[in-house]
């Protein structure tokens, strides 16, 4: 039936998984970004609230839906 070959390719084998990953640029993008992960953490460090414990403790909400 026509639908057979249009079925989503479940990655039942390692090959299929690798192909699926290779077919996107996300993996390559991730590698590149891992290189500057330190720069990212520095950036995040610079905006994090200073007293983590106190800040988190003071975030108290009333219930919602």
């Amino acid at each position: 039936m026509a639908q057979e070959h249009k079925q989503p390719r479940r990655s039942t084998s390692d090959n299929a998984s690798e192909e699926a990953v290779a077919s996107t640029d996300a993996a390559g993008r991730k590698e590149q970004l891992d290189d500057d992960v330190d720069a990212i953490l520095d950036e995040i460090d610079s905006v994090l609230e200073s007293n983590a414990e106190e800040f988190v403790k003071s975030f108290v909400q009333k219930g919602g839906q």
């Binding site: 989503p8 390719r9 990655s11 998984s17 699926a20 990953v21 996107t24 996300a26 993996a27 991730k30």
Partner: peptide, 18 residues
């Protein structure tokens, strides 16, 4: 949907942008 499921299955970290 298909692309996300395939990549989540292989390595979830490849989906960090999405």
């Amino acid at each position: 949907w298909e692309s996300l499921l395939a990549r989540l299955e292989a390595d979830p970290m490849t989906c960090s942008a999405e």
